[in-house]
């Protein structure tokens, strides 16, 4: 039991289960899953589907944070990739063609990859602080997206694009398959090869890992490329969801929610050890919390207050000082007999 409690995923998992239980008690329909035309529907399925963009962004963010970095530009990259995809589809003669949509998606994800490489170049090669290096693209990216769409919100009607966010495959939402594929890809890359260990080494001590022969530059660059590419895919899913490229609203504040998801999952912002499963749970917690807040009848605009308290709660739980206080309170009684024993020894000697 105590071994379970010591596991670093214990708190995230407990919070997620508690959140789902509270919801299930407050509204039994929450856990209900109905089958219509061989496709699954329900609040839980919605959470899985709607979490896809945040899941992708948070996975990329996990890798970046593991290298001691941070990527603030993900929201802007989402806006750019959505703008590129929709502009290509809008400009083509046949927006409903599967080929057109595929080309649009590939091009927009490649653009996102280049943007990620740009961030990586600034951080790994020019050695600029990650916060400020990615801030450049965060500021400029939305402007670029607005220029691509000419300052308008580009809308299209294209069934293949709509499928990405709203379609079903084998009864499950297609977006879920994208998240699962992304999780599997990251887990395979980081945990089945040495890459994960090297990434953690770079995050824990960049200088020492460089001296032991780890090519930290390439690893850091790669982390930002992954983050950018995943943000690009997230941008496509986002614009497929609303069937429009909205350069201002796409991925608004997503960088903050993604960082929150990573921290909720137990990965420290100081870099080093990271947990992919933790991030996945963190994303699900955030998405369930959002669904809960909507259910409570709180306007979604007011939901940041809740997230503020969640952030404060989480950082307090993780804080060493609170840990010490808690240990003193629970372990204090056990330690009390110790001085008596030593005095006893002194007396006998």
């Amino acid at each position: 039991m105590t071994r379970w409690m010591r596991h670093r995923l214990f708190l995230p998992v407990v919070s997620l289960v508690a959140l789902i239980l509270v919801n299930a008690i407050a509204r039994p329909r929450f856990v209900q899953i109905t089958v219509r035309d061989g496709e699954l529907y329900g609040a839980l399925i919605d959470i899985l589907r709607n979490s896809a963009p945040l899941m992708l962004v948070a996975l990329g963010m996990t890798v970046v944070i593991a290298t001691r970095g941070i990527d603030l530009s993900v929201g802007a990259v989402m806006a750019v990739s959505g703008a590129v995809a929709l502009t290509i589809i809008d400009g083509s003669s046949d927006p409903g063609n599967v080929g057109t949509v595929l080309v649009a998606i590939v091009v927009s994800v490649l653009v996102a990859l280049v943007l990620g490489a740009w961030n990586g170049f600034l951080v790994a090669v020019l050695e600029i602080q990650p916060i400020i290096a990615t801030l450049v693209l965060m500021l400029a990216g939305r402007g670029v997206a607005l220029l691509i769409t000419d300052g308008f919100i580009t809308t299209v009607t294209s069934p293949p694009l709509k499928y990405v966010a709203s379609g079903h495959l084998l009864g499950l939402p297609f977006a879920l398959f994208i998240s699962v594929a992304a999780i599997a890809l990251i887990a395979l890359m980081e945990r089945r090869t040495a890459l994960g260990v090297l990434t953690e080494a770079v995050g824990i001590n960049p200088e020492a890992s460089r001296l032991t022969g780890v090519r930290s530059r390439g690893i850091i660059l790669g982390a930002y490329v992954v983050s950018g590419t995943f943000a690009g895919v997230a941008g496509v899913i986002y614009s497929s969801n609303i069937m429009a490229a909205d350069a201002n609203a796409a991925g608004e504040l997503i960088e903050l929610y993604a960082i929150l998801a990573v921290v909720l999952g137990g990965t420290s912002l100081t870099g080093g050890k990271f947990s992919i499963a933790g991030t996945v749970i963190g994303v699900l917690i955030i998405q369930t919390l959002q669904s809960t807040i909507l259910f409570l009848g709180v306007s979604s605009a007011e939901s940041p207050v809740f997230f503020a308290f969640v952030v404060i709660l989480v950082v307090l739980i993780q804080s060493p000082r609170v840990y010490q206080v808690a240990r003193r309170m629970t372990g204090g009684r056990r330690h009390h007999p110790a001085p008596e024993v030593t005095t006893g020894v002194e007396v006998t000697s």
């Binding site: 007011e302 940041p304 207050v305």
Partner: peptide, 25 residues
């Protein structure tokens, strides 16, 4: 509480924005 400034002020960001919407939409 040894919270990184980035995360601590992120809580402040969420709090301020949410409270602004609580005051008026």
């Amino acid at each position: 509480f040894d919270v990184q400034p980035f995360i601590a002020s992120l809580a402040g960001l969420f709090l301020g924005r949410g409270l602004a919407f609580v005051v008026s939409l």
